[in-house]
């Protein structure tokens, strides 16, 4: 399998190596943080944002993720009217949010909607790590809950792609309560006998891991993703010892029984489709 991958990328490798040092075109190039190769951005994007050399899955914006999963032109957003709130009146928070909106062209750390996946209807929620590290404040909690409730109302399968640094600090206790709110909504979803697939991507930590991310009927993960409740740094500081190699990676969670399956990005849409199809009726 590894050899196949290497063969496949040989062609691209040649192109990349020849042009590697071209400073002039730096805007079009990106360095893989895993294999350190300099890659042509467009090539990476055309490869689902996976490194063509080493297979590293780069982080995806919600927009790109939706494009990869939903059938073209089928995604209809819901909950976009739910925006950031500032319940603590935390200094500088809304200003920061405004600046981020400008920069990222997204309004909050999750995008939800109804779409088709190979023709099958589904509710799809996709978090976006570019927006305050995908942290969950009231808007994320509200949007996710609305997606869950819509899924119950329309009796459709629910898929949530998780990427998050955890609960959003600037909204304090209100952020914490989003964990309870989303989990309670999933309890209703569960009672309704509907399918919920949770997909964990790099990184999924903190309050998101300790709520909807861990509650899927089926939990998938992208390879080599950091997934955990407490992050590695916090644990290291607490126990004052080095963590084992691969700690809190997808493969570690699979080994310990907390995810069902690791799925490469190129296979993700089809795996989701197969699962939806099997659970139909």
């Amino acid at each position: 399998m590894v050899i196949d991958k290497i063969k496949k990328v040989n062609k691209q490798e040649k192109i990349v190596k020849n042009e590697k040092a071209s400073d002039r075109m730096i805007g079009k190039w990106v360095k893989c943080d895993n294999c350190k190769e300099i890659l042509y951005k467009e090539e990476v994007h055309n490869n689902l944002s996976v490194c063509p050399i080493c297979g590293k899955h780069f982080r995806l914006s919600a927009r790109r993720r939706i494009k990869q999963i939903a059938d073209e032109g089928t995604f209809q957003e819901i909950g976009s009217e739910i925006l950031t709130k500032d319940p603590l009146h935390f200094e500088g928070y809304l200003k920061k949010v405004e600046a981020l909106k400008e920069k990222t062209k997204i309004e909050e750390a999750v995008k939800c909607g109804i779409c088709k996946i190979n023709g099958e209807d589904a509710i799809l929620a996709v978090m976006d790590g570019n927006f305050m590290m995908g942290s969950m404040g009231s808007a994320v909690g509200e949007r996710i809950t609305l997606a869950i409730e819509t899924s119950i109302e329309k009796r459709l399968p629910l898929i949530i792609f998780c990427v998050s640094g955890g609960a959003r600090m600037q909204e304090g206790i209100v952020s914490l309560m989003q964990m309870a709110k989303t989990s309670a909504a999933l309890a209703k979803h569960n009672e309704a006998g509907l399918l919920y697939i949770s997909v964990l991507t790099d990184p999924t930590t903190g309050g998101v891991t300790a709520s909807f991310a861990s509650l899927g009927d089926i939990i998938l993960a992208e390879p080599d993703s950091l997934i955990g409740f407490a992050g590695p740094r916090v644990i290291e500081q607490t126990i004052r010892q080095q963590l084992p190699e691969g700690f809190e990676k997808s493969e570690f969670l699979l080994e310990h029984g907390f995810i069902d399956k690791i799925v490469e990005r190129k296979d993700m849409k089809n795996v989701l489709y197969q699962l939806i199809k099997l659970h139909k009726n």
Binding site: F229, T238, F258
Partner: peptide
Amino acid sequence: PGIGAEERGQGEAIARNML
């Protein structure tokens, strides 16, 4: 926040209780 806690699914345990 410990190694064993993560190995045994601290996040899942908290989430499951709330649900």
